[in-house]
């Protein structure tokens, strides 16, 4: 075999995807936040980003729980996830949430799905525990007061 005849062939294999980048995973997470931890099933975008950020790691979740107990949000900044923005757009198109003046609100269809997700014990065990524990105590005002500090 001459050297010229030696050929290496590469075949590209599919890469793994983070579970939270699956559209329905993120959408249902948003629905849960709206359903379990937001007053009137409504929340601002800023606040949704905060929850999305907090649900990524256990220590952030504990920070959020602390904030709900003390009524003071002691988080100076949090991440903005483009995946959440896309998930919200999808959810709006699926008519699971709708845009309102203050942010996003669950639709009736969204609520039904959220209730089913809440009932299903096999999914989001840790997340649900956290959201139920935090409850609706993280208010828009708490989020706003932190965000105000960013503008200075």
């Amino acid at each position: 075999m001459t050297e010229a005849a030696v050929r290496l062939k590469f075949q590209r294999r599919p890469a793994p995807v983070m579970a939270e980048h699956r559209p329905l995973y993120k959408i249902c997470q948003v629905l849960l936040v709206l359903h379990l931890a937001s007053r009137g099933g409504k929340s601002s975008l800023l606040r949704l980003h905060l929850f999305n950020w907090a649900l990524k790691r256990a220590d952030r979740g504990r920070q959020l729980k602390l904030a709900s107990d003390t009524k003071v949000l002691n988080v100076t900044a949090w991440g903005f996830d483009p995946a959440l923005a896309i998930a919200l757009r999808y959810a709006i198109a699926e008519k699971l949430i709708r845009v309102v003046s203050t942010g996003y609100e669950l639709t009736d269809m969204g609520k039904l799905l959220a209730v089913d997700v809440t009932k299903d014990e096999a999914v989001f065990g840790v997340e649900k525990m956290l959201l139920v524990a935090v409850g609706k105590n993280i208010t828009e005002a708490m989020v706003d007061s932190v965000a105000k500090g960013w503008e200075a």
Binding site: A19, E20, L24, Y25, L112, A122, V123
Partner: peptide, 20 residues
């Protein structure tokens, strides 16, 4: 988490979510 995602896909299909 992936198993949750799979479960949610089935749940979404039940609710006629097209992305499912």
């Amino acid at each position: 988490r992936n198993k949750t995602a799979a479960k949610l896909r089935d749940l979404g299909a039940k609710h006629a979510v097209e992305l499912a």
